[in-house]
């Protein structure tokens, strides 16, 4: 039963990962390679340790694993435990979880440390940035849980009020954004290209989470799911 959830999460992760690997192959790899032509002094000392072909191939593989990891953790494990408290119909439940996953892994950290193209030097030390990134992941997860708690507490209110109040905790993320130490960036990439790169990155992650949610919802339509639902019903009698 539990392993059925794990398998569906992993399967959604494989499909999402392959889609994301395709995105890396067709969009991220050439985009990053193109942006590297603006590089003057790269953060890494000297030449890269591997050829650009190796970087392209390993990055595609990394993209597939990136999707697989989220599929297993968010939809294989977290969904199993949180299914009883996630709101709405089956598809909404997946989308809510995917939104929380995106906020935790990417959205909240990006408020402090937005995606940077290669060759951009940042004044904040990389250790401090890693700590802030990790801290914002925790904050994103915390705000997601808080939103869920508020939603459940306001069960008697009108849907619009309930939804708006549930989204209010997202404003708490402004607090760490204000508190972050200044991180001056400088690099040779034109500002317009930096914006295009950032939105490409955002688009890639949103599509990944949407794919995971969609595939997972589609998999749940199988007969396995109803057998499991019956399993729980019997257990609860």
């Amino acid at each position: 039963m539990t392993t059925g959830y794990l398998e569906r999460g992993a399967l959604a992760g494989v499909v999402g990962g392959l889609a994301y690997g395709l995105f890396v192959a067709l969009v991220a790899n050439p985009f990053v390679a193109g942006l590297e032509t603006f590089e003057s002094g790269h953060g890494h000392a000297g030449e890269p340790a591997v050829s650009s072909l190796t970087t392209s191939l390993v990055s595609i593989g990394g993209g597939v694993l990136w999707g697989l990891l989220f599929g297993i953790v968010a939809f294989g494990i977290a969904y199993y435990f949180l299914e009883p408290v996630l709101p709405g119909d089956p598809v909404t439940r997946r989308l809510v979880l995917a939104g929380a996953g995106f906020l935790t892994v990417s959205g909240a950290p990006w408020l402090v440390l937005p995606p940077q193209p290669p060759g951009v030097e940042q004044s904040l030390a990389s250790g401090a940035r890693t700590a802030w990134y990790g801290g914002m992941m925790v904050a994103g997860a915390g705000v997601s849980v808080l939103a869920g708690v508020v939603y459940r507490r306001l069960a008697a209110r009108r849907p619009a009020v309930r939804t708006a109040a549930s989204l209010a905790p997202l404003c708490l993320l402004a607090l760490p954004v204000v508190l972050t130490p200044a991180n001056a960036v400088h690099g040779g990439v034109p500002a317009g290209l930096v914006v295009a790169f950032r939105w490409t990155v955002v688009f890639g992650q949103v599509v990944l989470w949407a794919t995971l949610a969609g595939v997972h919802a589609w998999l749940a339509d199988s007969t396995v799911q109803s057998a499991e639902a019956a399993d729980f019903a019997v257990l609860n009698d």
Binding site: F23, V24, V27, A28, N29, F31, V32, A33, P48, V50, T54, T55, S56, V58, S59, I60, G62, G63, W66, S106, P115, Q116, P117, P118, V201, G204, Q205
Partner: peptide, 9 residues
């Protein structure tokens, strides 16, 4: 090796 995916993600 993972340089591009890190930037891409």
């Amino acid at each position: 090796g993972l340089h591009n995916i890190r930037h891409g993600a």
